[in-house]
Design a protein around this nucleic acid. Structure first.
Lengths: 134, 134
DNA sequence: GAGTTAAGATTACATTTGTAATCTTAACTG
DNA sequence: CAGTTAAGATTACAAATGTAATCTTAACTC
């Protein structure tokens, strides 16, 4: 499958969060620009035409499908989010860290990008792994 | 700083591995296409002109510098590898996992992408972290 | 010193990407 | 049913990217 660009990914993300969805649903979701505090955030505004172009490209790339619904289409992801994020993660780890995950984690640790919760989550993942690989 | 493209990254990688280096040094390194078994691998061949274009672009992007040495240049990285890989890692984790590292690791675990060594390395990182954050 | 060459500089060109505007036409409306 | 409209289809266009070829000229060679 062809690569998905950054802008395409954002559209796909909106679709993963809520599908099937019409183009307008997706545009609306992308433009929901109030943050957690309810304050208008200065996030980029997505233009109607832009999003539709990206939807078209995603269809061509077979990342999403659509079915006709009266006058408009309802789109759905074909690509699973988890599969996609894993593929991208593996690709980055392969390119930057010779395929090893630890150096990536080490980078985060070194720059104080980890907090107690992150560490707990990692410990829990490790203990699960050990349960399944004794 | 502007983004570094994939092809540019590969050139930069060669430079990180050995610098300062002339364009020819870099081209040679990129084309070292024998793998660990000594068998000729079918890796892509980098064309002289292509690499030089990429070096130029990296200079424009201020990712590398050069100094004149007789007839040719000696290039050196300006960008630190560790800083760059951390930035890219954080960017991916932000985009795909809401900034949380654990889900990325979980993806690897789920797909059996982790072995005993990886787990040991992670445990060691965690214990270091805990030593510094009690 | 004149000629040759090889490095880097400049130019090229197709594809992809971001970002839309315009075109067509099926579907709604009165 | 005719007119209007809004969805999607098609076209547009600049910047970035991958991949080189051609141009210039300083540096080597005889």
């Amino acid at each position: 499958m062809t690569e998905i660009s950054n802008a395409e990914f954002e559209v796909l993300e909106a679709l993963w969060q809520n599908h099937p969805a019409s183009a307008n649903d997706i545009i609306t979701k992308l433009n929901e620009n109030t943050n957690a505090t309810g304050i208008e955030s200065q996030d980029k505004q997505w233009h109607d035409k832009t999003v539709k172009t990206l939807l078209n490209r995603l269809v061509k790339k077979q990342a999403i499908s659509f079915e006709k619904q009266q006058r408009h289409y309802l789109y759905s992801p074909l690509l699973e989010r988890e599969a996609y994020t894993l593929k991208e993660s593996k690709s980055l780890v392969a390119r930057m860290f010779s395929g090893k995950l630890a150096p990536l984690v080490a980078g985060f640790a070194k720059q104080n990008e980890l907090n107690k919760d992150d560490i707990s989550a990692l410990k829990s993942l490790i203990s699960d792994w050990e349960k399944n690989n004794d």
